[in-house]
Nucleic acid binder design. Structure first.
Lengths: 207, 207
DNA sequence: AATGAAAAATGACTACGGTCAAGTTTTGCT
DNA sequence: AGCAAAACTTGACCGTAGTCATTTTTCATT
């Protein structure tokens, strides 16, 4: 019978993911042991490691699903006629709120996303890729409207804004920014600086 | 006899730090267990935890010392008359080379620096503070020479460039940038974009 | 010098992430 | 159906970070 094996594998993997969604949601990532996860999924501990390469790999898989939802939801909430800066702020604050809903969870996820171990590289890149897709349309549109330079690759522009978001997130985790409002303000300021440039206007004209 | 106790405490702490410098240097952070550290320092395992709050706390203390050296060395290597962009590139590439000399070590350090746990916050901020001091003089000078806007706080400017450095570092850890040269080039491009701005010139003039 | 209280050191212990040799199930083949 | 190879599962086991009740050392007081 072709596919019995494959089907069972899918089921097992789904059971693990379901257990992860439940337990991570209930008690958070750090407080969920692999043993508990295995118990909840109805499999042995070792089985988990034939579907995921490490505990953080499960976190990444979990987040990939959750974030896909989030981004879909987000795509519909972006007002078409808003300014570029407003759109960016909306996206990043949405992301910020999700990531920091559970502080420990968010920290572990970001650590794995930004400084991934060799084993987790692939998944972290997929998530990032997904996130970047959100921006491509927005940036293309902005370029067409003449609100963004056309001589810069979109991935560069993306990277630039994402870097600033990271900085703000880090500042929040370090306690230099305390509230959501602080983060929003910091982002707003940094974004407009990035757009206009850090050089004085007189200097820019020279080049 | 006043201070015997205090003196011994200093000695014990120094012994732990020395052991850390030796063992982390020899086998790296991940391959050094607390038990081994305790053995090398000639103390019990528990003792280490009355001087440091966690393993990563030791890493941070270790790095604080090492980086202080590095930054002192660096301060003398910065050519006075170089362009702002060249100076920045020099500093960040120096830092990059140090951090990535041992990949695992650097990853753990950066994870702890950028997304610190509550316990390690203080030390990670001190290291960052130390790093920022490197820039203050350079930026002040640049402002005086009219190469940087004066209506932006220096800490903001710092944060902006540091964010871009982080992005490059992350890209290296994710495998999107492969060599030191790639990182240098990426930084160079992003820095000049940050200085000139991401908006087209025509748009900037309007504001 | 003797003593008891306070500070510091200790290592057996716990809980966890991850491994792997042994056991179980599925599959293709005769 | 019977069988052997391949794929999959399992939990006892390992090494490690971090804890804590107990023991040892220091210090002030008499």
């Amino acid at each position: 019978m072709a596919g019995l094996r494959e089907q069972k594998k899918q089921e097992t993997k789904a059971a693990i993911m379901d257990a992860a969604i439940t337990l991570f949601g209930e008690r958070g990532y750090e407080n969920t042991s692999i043993a508990a996860l295995a118990r909840a999924a109805g499999v042995g501990k070792g089985t988990i490691y034939s579907y995921f390469s490490s505990k953080s790999d499960i976190l990444l898989a979990f987040s990939e699903e959750e974030l896909a939802c989030l981004h879909l939801e987000l795509q519909q909430k972006i007002p078409v006629n808003a300014l570029l800066e407003e759109k960016l702020l909306l996206i990043f604050m949405y992301e910020f709120r999700y990531i920091t809903k559970n502080k420990e969870f968010g920290r572990t996820l970001m650590r794995e996303m930004i400084f991934p171990k060799a084993l987790a590289r692939e998944k972290s890149q997929e998530i990032e890729e997904q996130f970047i897709q959100l921006f491509v349309l927005i940036f293309k549109e902005a370029q067409e409207k003449g609100q963004l330079r056309q001589d810069i690759e979109l991935t560069m522009t993306c990277g630039h804004f994402y870097a600033l978001y990271l900085m703000a997130l880090s500042a929040w985790y370090s306690g230099r920014l305390l509230s959501e409002e602080d983060v929003r303000n910091a982002l707003q300021v940094m974004f407009s600086q990035a757009l206009v440039g850090l050089k004085p206007k007189s200097e820019i004209e020279k080049s």
